[in-house]
Every structure is written in structure tokens, then in C-alpha cells.
Amino acid sequence: MTNNGSTQDKSDSNPQVGSWTVKSGLAQMLKGGVIMDVVTAEQAIVAQEAGAVAVMALERVPSDIRRDGGVARMSHVTLIQEIQSSVSIPVMAKARIGHFVEAQILEALGVDYIDESEVLTVADEQNHIDKTNFSVPFVCGARNLGEALRRISEGAAMIRTKGEAGTGDIVEAVRHLRTIDGQIRKLTSMRNDELYTEARDLQVPIELLRGAAETGSLPVVNFSAGGVASPADAALMMQLGAEGVFVGSGIFKSAADIDDDNKRLAQQKAMATAIVKAVTYFDDPKILAEVSAEVPQTAMRGLSVAQLLPDELMAGRGS
């Protein structure tokens, strides 16, 4: 190309990595897509084959974390590396809330996104990770507008409503998305003097709150998570305004009644594919009916959130 000397100088400005635009930009590229929890390289390949936009590399899916109890930490580094080398789509991994060293390790591994997640055991009950210190972007969970804007003020470049992970019960995901949506709609009709009071009540920076009031939306992409277990669940969250979905136990805990490993994995792939299609065609009931016919007979068994004890709930961790 024929660049002359004078334009060359400007053109050779140093590339800027880890900027806000670049961090929130990857979340924008994931929109309209499905991010799937995987615990093996084999599952990661199935997820990519089904059309996932990213995988979340985990040692245990949330429903198993629930069952096993104990302390849930960042996944083993070797497992994350195996999954990274097995797929070409982005790989995300979870760090404990407040555990900035787990986050440093994940960044050093070159994961594409870190989920500072309530699904793992909390490492710091007072503070979240200062996410502005990192080049790698973070996604964080939120149950309401206050949590969402606090996480964004700490540097989160993407939000996911928390739902209640590992239950297969969509009720909390619906509650959290409707809560945030309702709170933002209320903001858009507030007078300027009322916004200061709202910022105080929600314990968030006024600038972020004012931005949400002006645009009628969060300043970053918002996905739904925690309870999606069928194509209909995924489409429900999209119709309620989610920009994409995380599916945890809903895929690789489906078809649990099938003993043969290969047959079970094939059925789980059918579930994954159907959820991907349901997120793209979320407002087309005819296609939703078609894809719902393709899923395994047995969805994940699930737990009703209403029957869980207060200390069994994950969503309350890290507010």
C-alpha cells in the first residue's frame, strides 16, 4: 500500500490493548448467542459444534457444585488449557468473588473473559475484584440495577442476571431481568433532582445512573443466566429483553437417563443446538415449536428454587 511518510506516523500509533471499547466490544460480538458451561474438552467441542458463541470452562457445573458442597474454587489450570486448545471460540472461566489472584492467573492463561461468579465460594465478603486493573474483560452477575451498576463501576464490561444457578428453575432469572428492566424504566421518568436520591439509595455513581436514565439501558451488554434448561426458557429470557443467554447445567445435565455415553452426548448436543436456534428465532413460535421437538425427552431434573433453604441460594452472594 502506498502510505506516504506523513500519514505513516499517525498510522503507526501504538495499538491500545485492554481499552474499555475493546473489553465491552467482545460482549457486543457475543450478543444473540449462547454461552455454554463445559467441564471437558469433549463437551467444549460439542458446544462449539452446536453453535455456542463461547464456552465457560468449569470443573463442575453449578448443579454438581450444589450437590457436592465444600469450597468451589477456580478450575484447574490444566483443564482450562485443554479446553482452550480444543476450540476456536472464546473461552471464559470463573474466579471467586473478590479473589483477584485467581483472576490474575486466568488472565495469564489468556482466557477471553473472566466471570467473577457467585456460583463459586465467595473469597471476600466486603470487596469485589477491582476489574479496572486487568486487560481481560469481566462479566459479573446482578440481581438488580444497583448490583449491575456497582459491578460496572468496578470495571465489569458485561453483566448477566444471576438467576439461581444449577437449579434448572427459570423463576429467579425472570425475576432479576424484570427487576433491572423495571428499575431502568422508572429511571427514565425521573426528574434530575430525583436521580441523586436514587443514586444514593442504590449506592451507585450518579454518572452511571444518569447514563442509564438517558439511554434507557445498561451501558454494557446484559445476558441472562441461572436456570435456563430448555429452548423455551432461553426464548423467554430473550423476549424479556436479554441480549443472550448463559446455559449451565441445562445442557450437559440433560438426557441423564441415557446410560450410553455417546448416545447421551448426542442428545445433549441436540439440546445445545436447539437452544442456539431458540435464541436466534426467539420471537418465532413456529420455529420454537420445531426446535423444541428436537431436544432430548429428559431435560435436567432440576430443583425448585421455592424449596431451597436461604443458605442454599447462590444469588445472594456478593451484592
Binding site: 499517525k10 495499538p15 491500545q16 490493548v17 475493546v22 472464546p90 481481560v136
Partner: peptide
């Protein structure tokens, strides 16, 4: 991976004036 994503001023043939802020 994502940590190497970047933005950079870029001259594009057919775009006059200042370089574009290109986001990769």
C-alpha cells in the same frame, strides 16, 4: 486471545480526513 484485542488509528483507502479509530 482477547487480551491482544486492540484499537488503533488506521488509514483506509477511500476515507478522507483523519484516520479511522479501528477496533480489532
Amino acid at each position: 486471545s482477547q487480551i491482544y484485542s486492540f484499537e488503533k488509528q488506521l488509514h483506509v483507502e477511500g476515507i478522507n480526513g483523519d484516520p479511522l479509530n479501528a477496533i480489532f
